[in-house]
């Protein structure tokens, strides 16, 4: 058997040319279904990328009580630099805060008359990134509590929506996205499998004749499986090419204010996953079909 295997696999590839129209239809069906799966992956990837830019970020404004000793505040600022997950830290003394406010207000922001009696407190703008694997809600609660517990801290402001968005996306991923991916995979398998089966119907006579002359099942199945693998690979490859064409066409269609969304192509590993999955599904479907 092993000596015949390469010849049988080669025959499977060569036999694809025997029924060109049946192969073209099969290839078209496999390509279209793979393209559908690819489009979904593309959408998912780009939504995920967009959320990655914003999600998992916690921006907290910390205000110390007016009149707090600045040396003590500075000591705490030094400690803040060691906060786990710290991405950015901007610190404002009361004078810097006033200056920043005046700059932001432009011509009307002349607060020189407040010099010496500045009512603004010392403050800090702390940007934190959610460490991988942490629950956003619990992590946020802990961070806020830790900042509030700093001596002299009067108020802590943050936007809970940012974390809720991250949490919402994680929940959505768990409850909707993966089931949809599973469902889509099943659809791909069914369509590819049935197309392969229909393709085999056109070769029913050949299979019958092979059995008549004493062919063992593996002799009949090997070329058909090789043909299925080639169909799957070719269909997957064509769908990736079409996906690239679609991505190029829509790449900048959402890249305008205020959206500024760019549609990127799938990363190499995801493209490889799509190609490999379709080929695998094609082989498995052919296997199921030829077993019948």
């Amino acid at each position: 058997m092993s000596a015949q295997l390469p010849r049988l696999l080669l025959r499977g590839v060569r036999d694809l040319g025997l029924h060109p129209w049946a192969q073209v239809f099969t290839l078209t069906a496999v390509t279209m279904v793979s393209l559908l799966a690819g489009l979904f992956m593309l959408l998912l990837y780009n939504v995920d990328q967009e959320l990655l830019r914003n999600r998992g970020q916690l921006q907290v404004q910390v205000f110390w009580a007016p009149g707090t000793d600045m040396d003590a505040v500075r000591a705490q600022w030094t400690g803040l630099k060691d906060t786990p997950g710290l991405k950015d830290l901007r610190l404002f003394t009361p004078d810097q805060a006033l200056e920043d406010l005046a700059g932001a207000l432009g011509e009307i922001g002349d607060f020189s008359w407040l010099k010496g009696g500045n009512p603004l407190p010392a403050s800090a703008l702390v940007s934190l990134s959610l460490p991988k694997g942490e629950d956003p809600r619990a992590w946020t609660r802990d961070r806020i509590a830790a900042l509030k517990a700093l001596p002299g801290v009067d108020k802590v402001h943050y936007n809970p929506l940012q974390m809720e968005l991250a949490r919402g996306w994680m929940d959505l991923s768990k409850t909707v996205v993966w089931p949809v991916i599973g469902f889509l995979g099943l659809v791909v398998a069914l369509v590819v499998g049935n197309t392969m089966k229909l393709n085999l119907v056109s070769r029913r006579d050949e299979v019958e004749i092979l059995y008549l002359v004493g062919a063992k099942p593996w002799f009949i199945r090997c070329p058909l499986l090789a043909g299925g693998a080639v169909q799957g690979l070719a269909g997957g490859l064509l769908s990736l090419i079409l996906l690239k064409v679609v991505q190029e066409a829509v790449k900048n269609s959402l890249n305008f204010p205020p959206l500024f969304l760019r549609v990127d192509f799938l990363p190499l590993e995801q493209a490889g996953l799509l190609l490999g999955s379709v080929a695998l599904v094609a082989v498995l479907s052919s296997w199921v079909a030829v077993r019948g």
């Binding site: 058997m1 000596a3 015949q4 004749i209 092979l210 002359v213 004493g214 062919a215 063992k216 002799f219």
Partner: peptide, 8 residues
């Protein structure tokens, strides 16, 4: 040849 090929 088919009849002989199946016999290897």
């Amino acid at each position: 040849a088919l009849a002989l090929e199946v016999r290897g």
